[in-house]
Structure formats: C-alpha cells, structure tokens
Amino acid sequence: MEDVILEIEGLSKSFGGLQAVSDVSFSIGRNEIVGLIGPNGAGKSTTIRLISGILKPSSGTVRFKGKNITDKPVWDIVNMGLASTFQVVKPFRQLPVAANVMVACLCPRAKRHGEWVKTVELRARDALEFAGIADLALEPASVLSHGDLKRLELARAIATEPELLLLDEPFGGLNPAETSMIARSLKRLHKGGRFGRLHSEGPAMLIVEHKLADLMPILDRVVVINFGRILAVGTPEEIVNNPAVIEAYLGKEVGNLVSGS
C-alpha cells in the first residue's frame, strides 16, 4: 500500500510473568479498514491499548503519520488524530449523554478540525445522531443500557475528529439489527459520508470484534492474533480459508458460515 498511517514494529508487553503481546508488527493504510481478530485472551485489546497510549509497551515502537508516538501521553495521541474506544465502557455517569460527547468536542483537535460554524452542542448532537442515540441526549449516562453505552463510546471517539479510529468490540451488547446498522454506518463514515454529507476523507479504522459475519464485509484486511503473536495477515477471503486460522479461532463450521455469507 502506498500511504501508511500507522506502523507498529516489534510491539511487546508483559504483565509480570505473562507475555500478553510479543513482537507484533503490522501497518495500516490511510484508506483501510483493518480487522484485528483472535480468540479470547489473545492480546487484541492489549494491542489496541498499547497503540492508543493507555498502556506503555515493554518494547517496540508505534509510528502514527510518520511520528513516533510510543512515549506520548494519551491526550497528545488523541489530538494528533488517533481516537480509540474502550471494550469496558467508562462513561461520565453523572453527566448527560450529550455532555459526555461534548467533552470530546472540547479537545484541542476537535476545536481545530470541527465544523466551526457549529456550536459544541450541535457537534455533539451530530456525533450522537451518527451513533443512533440522539434521542437520549439529555438523560444521564448512568441510565443507558450496555448497547447504548457502546454507541456512546463510538460517538465520543468520532467527536474528536480522528484520522485513525481504534474500535474495541464496537458491536458488543448490540442485537443483530443494531449490529448491521452500526457496521454500515462505520463503512459510510470511512468513505467520508459522515452525517450524510461528504467530508474530504473518512478515518482509517482498526476494529477488534468477534461478530465476524457483520464485520467481514466491511473489512479490507484482517490481522489474526493468537497467544500474543500474529498468526496471519490477509484479505477476509484469504483469512477464512486459512487452515491455521480455522484451526485456532474460527472452527470449521463458522469458517464455512463466514465465507458463505
């Protein structure tokens, strides 16, 4: 690929004696949606947290837009254009849903890159509409269900106007209809059609997810991790037919299901 936005080299992380991620290297292009899949405990979430700066790696480097961001604080990375969501959602529970997103709209990057004709409230409302929870804008975040909190997390991440979006299980807790709706929204966002208008370009994405049937159609490339190491990299078709991946993660029947859909 010609235009690389994120480059990871030899990323490793150990928690005490447990080697969670070891020597992971891959890169993401500016116009790609990349899936990061693997069995439970394979180190997918840890990888995402290492890239977004919430955890610091034991060794290895992360380069975003050509700059080394390995040792930068989380907020600097977000303000460079790399936003991430959490697997376990942590909203500001006492604040209204709209205020949760407004905090992200108030970060320096969103102030620079956001639509300046709009107030912070309107921008937050836009992000909530994208995630499909604009009707809950005034409710405190503590009353939201788990699925709605996942959408809030997504709205908060895109409100920072990212160039690369790291999504940790964005479909977790959503029912099948909602899952396919969010998947289609993500594809549209990536094409630059955010909120129904054409932006110059949408963000690249790295998505960790288990619901492969909905995920595979929107992916350009898949990275499979097992036991903290990269097992395979390739297009969705290559991955579902890769015997090592079927053995480790997909299983025979699921493999057929995904390739069949």
């Binding site: 919430i54 989380v74 907020w75 977000v78 959490f86 500001f92 905090v103 970060c107 908060r156």
Partner: peptide, 21 residues
C-alpha cells in the same frame, strides 16, 4: 466546568477524549 466534572468522574476516559487532565 464540564471538563472538570468529566475529570472527576473518570480521568482515563477524559484523557482518551483528548483532554490534558
């Protein structure tokens, strides 16, 4: 005010929202 409230509620999420807490 809204940022101070957010930091008090959850500092990690505030940082992940690009706020220099």
């Amino acid at each position: 005010g809204i940022i101070l409230h957010a930091i008090r509620e959850d500092e990690i999420t505030a940082r992940a929202s690009g706020i220099n807490s």
